[in-house]
C-alpha cells in the first residue's frame, strides 16, 4: 500500500469509528517503516479533523465524536513509540477546565480531545475549578492559552474573575483567554475582556491555532 493510500485509509477508519482497521493500518505503517509522526499527522489527525467538521455540521454528535477519538487513540498508542525524538517538537500548552460551581464537563472533554488530537498539549484541570487555580496552573505550566468552560448561567461570573485575577497580577498579556459553554456568547466574551469565544469543540481548535500564530507575530 502506498503511503498516501494508507494515510487516507487511517483517516477514513477514524471517521468510521473503526478501531480494528485503525489498529491494522497503524501496524502496517510501522512494518513499512513509514514515518510515525507523519502517519499520525497525515492519517489519524486528518480523520479527527474530518470528524470534528462532521460534528460542527451536526452530522456527528457527542457519542460519535468520542468513538472517533477512541479509534484515534488506538492508532496513536501503536505509532507513538516509533516517533523519532527530533520530531517531538515543542507543543503549545493549554490549560483547560470547568469553572467553579459547575460539574458539567462533557463540552470541556470534547474540546480537550480535539485539541490533543490537533497536537496541543492540554493540561486538564477538571471540573469545579477555583478561579485562582486557572491562573496559578497556567503560570506554572507556562501555558499560552487558558480555556474556561461553563454550562450554567450561575457560574459564568467566575470566568470574569479569572480575567480580573490575570489583570490584578499584571500578567494578562501573557495568556490568551478563551471561553465556551452553553450560556456563553461572543457578547459575554467581549464584556468580560476574554480574547475569544468558541461555540464548539472544533472551532476551539481553529481558535487555538490562530491565537498561537498571532502570539508568534506579536513583538515580545
Amino acid at each position: 500500500m502506498t503511503k498516501e493510500k494508507l494515510y487516507k485509509g487511517l483517516a477514513d477508519a477514524v471517521v468510521d469509528m473503526d478501531e480494528s482497521t485503525v489498529a491494522r493500518l497503524s501496524e502496517e505503517a510501522v512494518c513499512n517503516r513509514f514515518d510515525a509522526y507523519e502517519t499520525i499527522d497525515m492519517g489519524l489527525a486528518k480523520g479527527m479533523e474530518r470528524a470534528g467538521q462532521l460534528f460542527e455540521d451536526e452530522e456527528y454528535f457527542v457519542p460519535e465524536l468520542l468513538m472517533c477519538s477512541e479509534a484515534l487513540t488506538v492508532g496513536v498508542d501503536i505509532l507513538k513509540p516509533h516517533i523519532r525524538r527530533s520530531e517531538r517538537e515543542d507543543k503549545h500548552k493549554i490549560v483547560i477546565g470547568v469553572i467553579r460551581g459547575d460539574t458539567h464537563d462533557i463540552g470541556k472533554n470534547l474540546v480537550k480531545l480535539m485539541l490533543s488530537s490537533a497536537g496541543f498539549e492540554v493540561v486538564d484541570l477538571g471540573r469545579d475549578v477555583p478561579t485562582n487555580t486557572f491562573v496559578d496552573r497556567a503560570v506554572e505550566e507556562s501555558a499560552r492559552i487558558i480555556m474556561i468552560s461553563s454550562l450554567m448561567t450561575t457560574t459564568m461570573e467566575g470566568m470574569k474573575e479569572v480575567v480580573s485575577i490575570l489583570q490584578e497580577r499584571g500578567i494578562r498579556s501573557r495568556f490568551k483567554v478563551v471561553i465556551g459553554g452553553g450560556p456563553v456568547s461572543q457578547g459575554f466574551a467581549d464584556k468580560i475582556g476574554a480574547d475569544a469565544y468558541s461555540p464548539n469543540a472544533n472551532h476551539a481548535v481553529r481558535l487555538a491555532n490562530e491565537l498561537v500564530r498571532e502570539d508568534a507575530r506579536e513583538p515580545k
Binding site: M17, V62, P63, E64, L66, M67, E70, D105, I106, N109
Partner: peptide
Amino acid sequence: DPMPFLKDLRR
C-alpha cells in the same frame, strides 16, 4: 461516568 456512558450508547 458520563464520557464512557456516552460511548457505551454506541458500543
